[in-house]
Design a protein around this nucleic acid. Sequence first.
DNA 1: CGCTTATGGATACTGATACTATCCATCACA
DNA 2: TGTGATGGATAGTATCAGTATCCATAAGCG
Lengths: 210, 210
Amino acid sequence: MRIGELSKATGVPVPTIKYYLREGLLPAGELSSPNQASYGDAHARRLRLIRALIELAQVPVATVKEILESLDSDTEPLHEQIGRAHRALTPTRRLSATDEARAAATTQVSELIAARGWSVEADAPALATLVDTVAALRTLGQEGLVAHLDDYADAVERFTRIEIEGVTKNPTRDQLAESVVIGTILGETLIASLRLLAQESISADLWKNR
Amino acid sequence: MRIGELSKATGVPVPTIKYYLREGLLPAGELSSPNQASYGDAHARRLRLIRALIELAQVPVATVKEILESLDSDTEPLHEQIGRAHRALTPTRRLSATDEARAAATTQVSELIAARGWSVEADAPALATLVDTVAALRTLGQEGLVAHLDDYADAVERFTRIEIEGVTKNPTRDQLAESVVIGTILGETLIASLRLLAQESISADLWKNR
DNA sequence: CGCTTATGGATACTGATACTATCCATCACA
DNA sequence: TGTGATGGATAGTATCAGTATCCATAAGCG
C-alpha cells in the first residue's frame, strides 16, 4: 500500500497520516527508494486504532503515543503495560480542593479500597482523581451522591468482571494487552454514552411534566 | 466580597475570574460604582462548580457555559434542561466507521434499547456516539467486548438507579436540576477513576507474572 | 521517452482553546 | 494623599491538532 491507498482505506487524509508519522504514532513504511514507502495491513489497523482513540475517546495525540509505546513493548510484564497506559490516561492533578475536604475524601476512599480488598498502590494516578472528585462533590453540596460511593464501586466491579471475561479468551499476550487497553479506553466512551441514554430515558419517565 | 477575596476563597486567580466573567460563565458582581463590584456566596459556589467541571471533568469552557445557561433557565421543564446539558456534553460526531460497520452497530444498539424498554429519541446525541463506539470496537477486532453490551447496560442502569436515589431527595427543583447535572458530569469522572482502580487491582491479581 | 501525478521529508502556517498580561481611569482606605 | 486594588478593554501567549507548501524524486501512463 502506498500512502494514498492507506488514506483511502482508512478515511484519514494524507497530511494527517504524515503528521502521525512525524509524531511517531505510526511506524514508518518500508522504504523501497528514498521517496517511496509501502505500508501494510498492520499500518491500517494501527491507524484505525489511533483514530478511534482520538476521535471517539478524545485522547490527546501525545497520550496516544505513550499508550502505543507501552503496547509495543512486549518485553514488559502485562501489569506494567497496563499501568503505563493508566498513567498516560490520567492527567496530572492540579490541586484545587481545600485541605479539609481532601482529608475527608482521602479517608472515605481509603476505607472503600480497604473494604473492597482492592490492591492498589498508594501512588496510583487514578487515586488522586478519585479523591479530588469525591472532595469536589462534597464541596458542591452533593453528599447525596457521595453517600453511594460503595454502590458505584459495586457497579464498577461489574464492568471489570465483564471486561475480564470478554478479554481473557485472547490467544496471545499481545492481543490480550491490546484488548485490555482498547477496552479500558473505548469502554469508557461506551459506558458514558450508555449512561446518557439511560438517563435520558429515566428523565423522560420521571420528569415529563416539570 | 471583592474580586480579590473571591479569588482567595476559591483559589482561582483573579485574571481567570475576569476571564470567566468576560465569557459569561460567571454573572457580574453588583456594581456599587463604575469600578467596584461585590460578589456574593452564590458567585463562590458557581465558581467552584465551574472549576470542578473544567479541571476535574475536562469540560471545555464553551460547554460549561451552555450547561450553566441551561441550569439557570428555571422556566424550562427539567427534562428539557437535562437534554440541553446532554447535547452540550456530546461532541458532534465526525463519522469515520465504514457503512457496513455502522449498519451492524445501529441494529445492535436499536435492539438493546428496545429490549431494555428505554425511551430515547432517535436523534439523541449519545446514540450516535454509542453506535460509533460499537462499530469501532468491532472494526478493531474486539467483538469479545461488544458481545457483552447487554451486561454493560445492566451495570449502567445500576448507576442510574443510584443517582436517582441520591438526587431525588433534593427539596427544590433548581437544586434537583443542579444535582442531576453535577451527577452526570462528575459522576463520569468518579466512575472512570473507580474503574481504573478496579482494573489495576484485578490486573495485579491476574497478571503479576506476565 | 516524456509528462502528469504521487510520494517522502522538511518546514511553515493555521485556527481553536484557555488563559495571562498590560493599560488605564477610577476607587477604597490607611 | 498616596498606595494598592478594581472593572473593563485589548493584546499577547502556549499548546494542540492538524493543514499547507516546497522540493527533488519516482511511478504509471500513453
